[in-house]
Each structure stands twice: as structure tokens, then as C-alpha cells.
Design a protein around this nucleic acid. Structure first.
Length: 526
RNA sequence: GGCGGGGUAGCUCAGUUGGUUAGAGCACGGGAAUCAUAAUCCUGGGGUCGGGGGUUCGAAUCCCUCCCCCGCUACCA
């Protein structure tokens, strides 16, 4: 059915009880960049995101605001939708867990697990802290001075027994380990995979997968007193999006997903619970769990009490969408935690985008515009220097594919910008402005070579800075249908004599506005 | 406590079959050029490679020990 290789990628689905923050923006941008990369590389890409809208917290947050959980979910979903548009990172498909089709999918996977014999009804019991809304193990409980039982955080706990459905997770430890063994890249980076393996090696207990203390969730089939544990419901979104349980659905062929992009805090849910559920239900397991780190504001977690909360919209509007995308993906080694600050963003985007790439384009295209009647020069014989820089550019598709195998977006950008830096050295070394007077034809060859390098670089940079790359490609006269990675070769090179538009700067420099204390306007605390 | 990761230039980091004067980018100093978004190019300074001990002709790289930081150690998501 599919004529092209497929690539299905997802973000985690944000919990809908709060508006988007930097972490959500980062994950969406990174996933979008990967999706765009694969699409430009010729794959049939299905990019899924969604919203996790059930659970106690939703019910509580809505209650505090005096609205229904559904209304809260609708409001938050709209905010995330706007974020996707703003960041130029819209997904192909958005799945919300309150949709009827998702109820159907959740019931179906539950029934499949039940049919397998992996779900049973029992009592969940333990020491429960009402204040912390959490259970604690016997070993964690301390006895206070008055003999009262206390949680590790000092809050009173009481013995609670609750009827609950359990998933026979304990039966899956060995199958999971076998799967890890057979798929050494299942969780990446390896650091997180090791922790998961260690966790499973210690043995798995059965998992409580229903709740009776609230009702904002998917009812358990055949027992309305229970709603499904929010993770059963949430993880299932990925297959709902592909049409489950209808395996003849239009998009079912995209499953299993090639990559679930997630934050490091939810690695366990995606690497242990989710594969176990799928094994039980007889559904294929996603190929890779791709874990990213957290972003910190000057090393500190963003929080209201610290007063360093900044919205993605603020950053995007202040520095530019592509600038923000570039900064996040270039500055933070993917899979690691990272930091952002006003200085770091300005430094990075000015240096790489405005100075290196933007200025290279402007200086070369301006010369073409002024000296070649606005037409791409016809190159003469290429010198060794010309060939060297061109070959470096033409090597980028293969090189960046290697980086993308490891989801090393930062490495991909480093590879591309190495060519940009070399192109600046090439340009300065060849001095086309001097050749203009001594060897006009040679000047044309230098300018053509530089424009050709810019063409290839712009094609390769599209996943990260889509809007800006599009402008650059317009400036070097590339047709809309010639912007795939397959076009990043000499076969699609700029045709000498073709008309080019008047160049305009693509990346504005960020200039600090002078103030008494030397600090310009900037997003609060950035 | 257990398991794992890490401490290398002002900043972010690269650097393991041990080997010539320890590297990159950014930041900083000097110079060149003037096509260009005061952008670019060249060049320089700067590091007891966490502390100590050991193996070796030779260690950031191997061994021992000590100090410090971080992650995981299940049902809030």
C-alpha cells in the first residue's frame, strides 16, 4: 500500500491541567524537527501528538476553577494547538483522550489484556497519605513521637484498602528483558536504557490499573465503579491515533511507531508498562523510545516561587521562532539536560544564524545582484578549493543521516554549520571582491560556488529552521519541488544564468537596547 | 545504603587498544581585509586534565584511595 518507507513519530501527550511551558515546546520542536527530517529524506511521515485529559488532577484543577473537567481540557487543548502553530510544529494528527474513539480504543486494549488473562480484580492496600495523595511502602513509614504513622515527608498516613484491577506485570519481566536484549536501541540514549534494565532486573510487581476514588476517566468495561488508571488510558492514545482497534483503518499501517519522543521522567511508563500492555494485547511494540532531558533557566527549574517562569510564546516572539528552535536543538545535546538564558540565546543565534549563515548569504548574494545583473553566474572550471567546499556540502545528507540515527540533532547542526564556517573561510580566501577587478569570470565561479553551498545548507537546515530556510531557498532560486534532501547534490545545482531575487537579510541580529544598567529589554528572568 | 554517570581552558564540552608542545566552539587580546547584517579572515593569551598515592621509559587515559556533583532505586503525572 505505501509506496514510500514510513516513519511514525509521536510526542508524549501533555497532561491537560496546565498551559504549555518550555518543556512542552522543546519536545514539540524536537519531534517536529525529526519528523521534518524524515519527510525531507523521502519518508511517508505520520507525526502524532495529543492531550492527556483524564485523572484526579484534572478533576481537582477544574473544580478549583469552578468549571467542568471537559471545559478545562478543551481550553488547554486549544492552548497547545496554538503553541503548535506558533512554533511551526504542527502535528499531522492530534488525539485527545476524551474523544469517543479513544474510549473505544481504551476499552478494546483493556479487553484484549483481560482476554489474555492478565487482568484480575483484587484489593490495593497500603499506607496512604491523604495530604500527599500517595501510597507508601511499609519500609518508608516512620513512627512519630505520639505513635502516629508518618510518611517520609512527615505527613500522617492511614491504612487503606481499595478494590482495584491489576495488570499481571510480574509475568512480563523476562519477556521485556528478552525484548531489550533483542533490541539494543529500544531506549535511547543508552544511559536511560540501563536504568530501565536495572529496574526490570530487580523484578516487577503487578500494577494497579484502575481507580474507584474518582470518576473522570475511561470506565472499566463491565464495571462502572472503576475508571482506568490514567497511564493505561494515556499510553493507548498512540494506537488510537492510528485507528485501533480497527486494524483496517486508514492509518493503521503506520503502527508500530518508529519513535516515541518523551521526557526522561516518564521513561518507565513507556519502556516497561507500555510494551507489556502491548505484548498482552497482542499489538506490535514501538521501535524506539527516544528520551530527552529537561531544560533549565540558568540551571534552575522553572517555578512560580523562583519567579522565572517564561512562556514559549514570550521566547518565540522575543527572539524569533526559528531562532528559538535553532537554539534549543543546537545548544542542548539531545538526550541531556540543558540550560537557556538570554545571553546564551543571543550569543548562539547571533553567531550562527546572523553572522555565519545570514551574513554569508547576504555578502555573496549581494555581489551577484550588483555585479551579475541579478542572475546566477555561470561557473567556469572548478578549482580544488571550489570542489572541496562543494563536496563538504554534498556530503551533508549522508553525514546528517548518521547523526539522526542517534537522534543527535545537535550533532547534525554542528555538521551543517561546520560547512558554513568553512564556506566563510573559502569566501574570504578567494576574495571575489578582488577578482571582480582582475578576473571577472573567476569571481562568478566563486559566487556560484558559494550560492550553491548555501542552497545545500538551506535544504539541510529546513528541519530545524523551516521558515528561514525557505526564505534562503527562495533567494537562491530553488523551486518549491526541489527542496528535498535528494536535491542536495550536484545534479540539482543552481543553473547559471537563472534569475535571482534581490537579496534581503534572513536572520536579523539581536541587538541589545542600551539602558542605564547596560541591560536591554529581555523576557523576564530569561 | 545499592547500582550507574560525571568532575579537562572564563563558559559548554571533545579526547580510552597509555606516547611527540592536551583540543573545539563561544568569550577575551592583537592584526588583516572591506564583498557583507560593525558581519568575515588570520593570530595570541589562558588549563597542577577534582586531591593524593602507585604501575610504566611515558598517564587526562590503567590500578588504589579520598573529596564533590548528578541519575535510578515503581503506581502524582
Amino acid at each position: 500500500m505505501a509506496s514510500r518507507p514510513e516513519f511514525c513519530i509521536t510526542t508524549a501527550i501533555p497532561y491537560a491541567n496546565g498551559k504549555p511551558h518550555i518543556g512542552h515546546a522543546y519536545e514539540r520542536i524536537a519531534t517536529d524537527a525529526i519528523a521534518r527530517f524524515q519527510r525531507l529524506d523521502g519518508r511517508d511521515v505520520f507525526f502524532i501528538t495529543g492531550m492527556d485529559e483524564h485523572g484526579l488532577k484534572m478533576q481537582q484543577t477544574a473544580g478549583k476553577e469552578g468549571i467542568t473537567p471537559q471545559l478545562l481540557a478543551d481550553r488547554t487543548a486549544a492552548q497547545f494547538d496554538e503553541m503548535g502553530t506558533l512554533l511551526n510544529a504542527r502535528a499531522d494528527h492530534v488525539i485527545r483522550t476524551t474523544e469517543p474513539r479513544h474510549y473505544e480504543a481504551s476499552r478494546a486494549i483493556w479487553e484484549a489484556m483481560e482476554k489474555r488473562g492478565d487482568i484480575y480484580l483484587a484489593k490495593y492496600s497500603g499506607w496512604y497519605s491523604v495530604r500527599e495523595e500517595a501510597y507508601f511502602d511499609e519500609g518508608e513509614i516512620a513512627t512519630g513521637a505520639d505513635g502516629a504513622r508518618l510518611s517520609p515527608n512527615g505527613t500522617p498516613v492511614e491504612w487503606v484498602e481499595e478494590e482495584s484491577y491489576f495488570f499481571r506485570l510480574s509475568a512480563y519481566a523476562e519477556r521485556l528483558l528478552a525484548h531489550y536484549e533483542a533490541n539494543p536501541q529500544f531506549v535511547t540514549p543508552a544511559h536511560y536504557f540501563n536504568e530501565i534494565k536495572a529496574f526490570v532486573h530487580r523484578g516487577l510487581q503487578d500494577l494497579s490499573i484502575s481507580r474507584t476514588t474518582f470518576n473522570w476517566g475511561v470506565p472499566v468495561p463491565g464495571n462502572d465503579k472503576h475508571v482506568m488508571y490514567v497511564w493505561v488510558d494515556a499510553l493507548t492514545n498512540y494506537i488510537t491515533a492510528c485507528g485501533y482497534p480497527d486494524t483496517t483503518a486508514r492509518d493503521w499501517h503506520y503502527w508500530p511507531a518508529d519513535a516515541h519522543v518523551i521526557g526522561k521522567d516518564i521513561t518507565r511508563f513507556h519502556s516497561i508498562f507500555w510494551p507489556a500492555f502491548l505484548m498482552s494485547a497482542g499489538i506490535e511494540i514501538p521501535k524506539q523510545i527516544v528520551v530527552h532531558g529537561f531544560l533549565f533557566n540558568r540551571g534552575e527549574k522553572m517555578s512560580k516561587s523562583v519567579g522565572n517562569v517564561i512562556s514559549p510564546e514570550t521566547l518565540a516572539s522575543h527572539y524569533g521562532v526559528d531562532q528559538l528552535r535553532y537554539f534549543f536543538l543546537r545548544e542542548v545535546p539531545f538526550g541531556h539536560d540543558g540550560n537557556y538564558s538570554h545571553e546564551a540565546i543571543v550569543n548562539r543565534t547571533n553567531a550562527d544564524l546572523a553572522n555565519d549563515l545570514g551574513n554569508l548569504a547576504q555578502r555573496s548574494l549581494s555581489m551577484i545582484n550588483k555585479n551579475c545583473e541579478g542572475r546566477a553566474p555561470v561557473p567556469g572550471d572548478l578549482t580544488a578549493a571550489d570542489r572541496e567546499i562543494l563536496d563538504a556540502a554534498y556530503a551533508l545528507p549522508a553525514k546528517t543521516r548518521e547523526a539522526m540515527k542517534e537522534f543527535a540533532l545537535h550533532q547534525m547542526l554542528a555538521d551543517i554549520w561546520k560547512v558554513v564556517a568553512d564556506a566563510n573561510r573559502y569566501f574570504a580566501g578567494e576574495e571575489p571582491w578582488a577578482k571582480r577587478k582582475t578576473d571577472f569570470a573567476r569571481m562568478g565561479t566563486i559566487l556560484w560556488t558559494t550560492a550553491e553551498v548555501i542552497r545545500v545548507v538551506a535544504i539541510m537546515a529546513q528541519p530545524v529552521i523551516p521558515a528561514s530556510a525557505e526564505k534562503l531557498l527562495d533567494l537562491v532560486g530553488v523551486a518549491a519541488d526541489a527542496r528535498k534532501f535528494a536535491n542536495a547534490t550536484s545534479a540539482s545545482a543552481i543553473t547559471g544564468g537563472s534569475v535571482l531575487p534581490t537579496p534581503v537579510p534572513v536572520f536579523p541580529r539581536y541587538v541589545e537596547t542600551e539602558q542605564v544598567n547596560g541591560e536591554g529589554p529581555k523576557p523576564k528572568s530569561a
